[in-house]
């Protein structure tokens, strides 16, 4: 823990992982609520050929360049998904599956070609693609910080528009908001978050940074604003946990540990979320059952008492009938008082 704060290298990794988790959580909230959790996965896999092509064209390993390549490839991938779903009966999940694997296959082919030929300084490209937070440098951190800031500001400014986009896009279009543009913007922001995340956790795991914190956050709140903040917080904490644990124990990779930490957070949320969590549900059901039993017991008791009262009244009428012969008032008063007493005890 101590060396995390003193060793500048480790400090970068810690900060970088936290910023990554933060941006993933914030932007992931919106993808999750749009029921497009898998779009992150699609974008991540689509980024692979984009990054490879960017590297082949320039021969330089730089996050900025990779970002451009990944953005273009991501745009191509989401466009393909949109076209497939619009012009066929194929549902989005199937379309994403097709596009995701196609782009990934192309990416792997390109990567293999890069590795077997003489493209510039290609060493470390695979590490970038499959995630190694330890390879982050201070300049990467600036990129990350900038991206995180951009994402948070964009989501803050367009909070109301994104909310509308997630909840009721048709209505938003009716109100005159450029919903298509907002959708593209959200996709673009998601791509940015994914691409910067790839470096730390890799193409395969980066989707977890978008989905898991957002789903966990949903368990703790019924308000979108709080959910967004919580998701960012959970993401940042997962990133920090990943950096901390992997720095303490040698031979542990940061990215996958972050994902494990995020999943632990998710499990805790599922179990202990205040209203939606399993524990709350079980407790709620139990107390409802107890209340119901008490209530129905009360009803039964009241019914018993009523029956008893009726019996007493009948008895009174009987005794009344007999008593009528010699004395009018006395037994009647007595049984009424008796009934009253019972009534009061209810």
């Amino acid at each position: 823990m101590l060396n995390l704060l003193t060793d500048p290298n480790l400090r970068w990794i810690l900060l970088g992982s936290m910023l990554l988790g933060l941006s993933g959580g914030v932007i992931g909230t919106f993808s999750y609520l749009r029921k497009q959790s898998l779009i992150g996965d699609t974008l991540a896999h689509a980024a692979l050929p984009g990054i490879c092509i960017a590297f082949m064209l320039t021969g330089v390993k730089s996050v900025g360049l990779f970002l451009v390549g990944a953005l273009l490839a991501g745009a191509a991938a989401t466009l393909s998904v949109t076209l497939i779903t619009r012009y066929s009966r194929i549902k989005p999940d199937a379309a994403m599956g097709i596009v995701l694997s196609l782009f990934f296959a192309v990416g792997i082919v390109l990567l293999t070609r890069i590795q077997h030929s003489s493209y510039g300084n290609q060493s470390g490209l695979d590490k970038f693609l499959f995630g190694q937070a330890a390879s982050m440098t201070s300049s990467d951190l600036y990129t990350l910080g900038g991206v995180a800031l951009l994402l948070v500001i964009a989501c803050g400014l367009l909070y109301k528009e994104f909310k509308l986009l997630c909840f009721d896009p048709g209505y938003g279009r009716g109100l005159g908001f450029p919903m298509g543009l907002l959708e593209q913007l959200l996709l673009g922001l998601t791509t940015v978050a994914v691409v910067v995340g790839i470096q730390a956790v890799g193409v395969v795991l980066v989707a977890a940074l978008l989905i898991t914190p957002a789903v966990s956050a949903r368990y703790w709140t019924d308000r979108l604003g709080v959910m967004t903040v919580l998701a960012g917080l959970f993401g940042a904490l997962s990133g920090a946990a990943g950096a901390w644990i992997s720095s303490g124990v040698s031979q542990l990779p940061t990215g996958p540990i972050s994902v494990l930490a995020a999943t632990a957070c998710f499990v805790a949320s599922v179990l202990f979320g205040p209203r939606r969590g399993l524990a709350a549900k079980l407790l709620g059901r139990r107390s409802a059952r107890r209340r119901w039993l008490a209530e129905s017991a009360g009803v039964a008791a009241r019914a018993n008492i009523q029956a008893a009262m009726q019996a007493t009244a009948q008895a009174a009428v009987l005794t009344d009938g007999q008593a009528n012969v010699h004395d009018n008032a006395h037994p009647n008063v007595h049984s009424a008082a008796h009934a009253n007493e019972r009534g009061a005890s209810v």
Partner: peptide, 12 residues
């Protein structure tokens, strides 16, 4: 099931 309140929806 969207995380929002009735008032929020009306404000839209």
């Amino acid at each position: 099931d969207f995380p929002t309140s009735a008032l929020d929806v009306v404000m839209m």
